[in-house]
């Protein structure tokens, strides 16, 4: 138990530090991130189709495309 205590302390310290953290990329530094070339899924209608092409022909499925949502489609 005594071995784990410092780990909890470290985690708590990190979390409490993070909650009050200043954004490490300032709003005025986000121009490149807002560029269309920096979108994981620039056009959802297109990436949804390619996911469908892959899943219909491969054994693997899931964890592709944008995070979030959770369409249960086959």
């Amino acid at each position: 138990m005594t071995m784990y205590l410092p780990i909890y302390v470290i985690i708590a310290a990190v979390l409490s530090g993070c909650m009050g953290a200043e954004p490490w990329v300032k709003p005025y530094e986000r121009g490149n991130l807002a560029d269309p070339v920096m979108q994981f899924d620039r056009d959802p209608v297109s990436s949804m189709y390619m996911n469908h092409v892959h899943e219909a022909r491969e054994g693997a499925r899931g964890a592709s495309g944008s995070a979030g949502g959770g369409c249960g489609c086959n």
Binding site: A67, G68, G69, G70, C71, G72, C73, N74
Partner: peptide, 8 residues
């Protein structure tokens, strides 16, 4: 952070 649940 995102979480999703789907049912079909």
């Amino acid at each position: 952070l995102s979480f999703g649940y789907g049912r079909a």
